[in-house]
Design a protein around this nucleic acid. Structure first.
Lengths: 166, 166
DNA sequence: GTCGGGCTACTCGGATATTGGCTGTCCGAGTCTGACTGG
DNA sequence: CCAGTCAGACTCGGACAGCCAATATCCGAGTAGCCCGAC
C-alpha cells in the first residue's frame, strides 16, 4: 500500500501548470528540471496525464504541456487515479470460495463483508481527494508562500525560456 | 497503491480464530489449508501478526495459533498495519525543496499542502478500519451465513483434528 | 499402579530463491519555427 | 517588400533494460505429548 512516486510528481506538475497564465505551456523536460526530477521517467507520468485528458500536449518546436481545463474543475483524485495502475487499493480474491468447506459459487452472490468494509474505506479516502480541487491547492499554496521562491520561479521561467506562448 | 495479498489472508485468518471457542487453537498449516492458501507463505503473514501482538503462537506438538485478546478489542486497522510494510500510503519526498528555484531548507518547516491533503485522506480510510472491530465482522458474517459452510466447517475441524485444546 | 525419563512427531521461525512491477533510459516519428529564396 | 518553400531543431510518444520488494519455498530449532520401563 504505497502510492507511486509519480503521483507526487504529477500533482506538483499540475500545480505548476495551474499557476502559469492561461494559454501558455511548459515543456515536460523543463517542468522536470524545475522540480529536480529526472526528465526521462517524468515524461512517462505526463503521458498518463495526457491519456487521462487532464493535460494537453502541444507538439512541435515551441510545444509543451498545459491543463485541458480550469484548475477548479480538476480534482486531486483525478490526477491520482490517472497515475496509479491499480484503481482500488483492495482487491478481494474471494478466498472464502476456496478450501474444503466452501459452498457452490452460486451462493456467493453478495460480496463478503471484508470486501465491503474495505471498499468503504476505499471510498473514504477517495472522497477526501475528490472534494479537493487543484485550484484549492493553488490558493492555499499562494496563501503561505515560501520566501523567495515565487521571485526565483518568475526569473527562471523567463531566463530559461520554459514558458511558451505568452 | 495496492494492499498486499497477505492482508486479505490475515483478516480471514483472524476471523476464523475469532470463531473458535475460547482457549482453543489451530495450527497455521491447517488454517492455510482451510482457506485454500499455500501454507508456506501464509506462515509468514502469521508471523507478522504474532510480532504485532495480535496472535499468540503455541509451540510444540499440539501447538497452534489463537488470538491474544477478545475479538471486540481488535480493530481491522491493527491487522492491516501489522501486515503492511509501508505504514502510510503517501510519502512526501519534499520535491518542493529540489530544483533551481527552491529556497533554503530552513524555510520548509511546515509540511507542504499536498502532503497535508494526502495525510488527511490517509486518516480517512484508517478511521473507517479503526472503527470496525473483528467482532463486528464476526456478527455480520454470522448474520448472513452461506448455506452449508458452518456445518462443513464444524465437521472439518473435528475430522481433521485441526482444533486443539478443546 | 504410578512416576519418571527419553523419544518422537509436530509446531513455529528464520534464512534462502524467484518473479512481477515500478523505476530509469533511450531513440524514432511528428510538427512548428524560422530563415532563405524567388517573385 | 511579401509569400512560399525547405531545412532544422525541438517536442512528445512508445519501445527497451535494471532493480527492489512482494511472493514462494525450504529446512532447522524448539517444545509438548506420548510411550516405555523401572519401582
Amino acid at each position: 500500500m504505497q502510492l507511486s512516486e509519480t503521483v507526487e510528481w504529477g500533482i506538483h506538475a499540475c500545480l505548476a501548470l495551474a499557476m502559469i497564465p492561461e494559454g501558455t505551456r511548459i515543456p515536460a523536460k523543463a517542468l522536470a528540471e524545475y522540480h529536480g526530477i529526472k526528465p526521462s521517467y517524468f515524461a512517462k507520468a505526463m503521458q498518463k496525464l495526457v491519456a487521462a485528458g487532464i493535460v494537453k500536449s502541444i507538439e512541435g518546436r515551441a510545444g509543451g504541456l498545459r491543463l485541458t481545463k480550469c484548475a477548479s474543475d480538476i480534482s486531486v483524485l483525478e490526477i491520482v487515479l490517472a497515475l496509479e495502475e491499480s484503481k482500488t487499493f483492495f482487491q478481494c480474491r474471494e478466498i472464502r470460495q476456496q478450501g474444503p468447506c466452501a459452498a457452490k459459487s452460486k451462493y456467493y452472490s453478495k460480496p463478503c463483508n471484508i470486501a465491503h468494509l474495505m471498499h468503504k474505506a476505499d471510498a473514504a479516502w477517495r472522497h477526501v481527494l475528490a472534494q479537493t480541487s487543484l485550484n484549492e491547492l493553488c490558493t492555499s499554496a499562494r496563501a503561505e508562500p515560501i520566501p523567495g521562491v515565487n521571485e526565483a520561479t518568475q526569473k527562471w521561467l523567463t531566463e530559461s525560456g520554459a514558458l511558451r506562448g505568452l
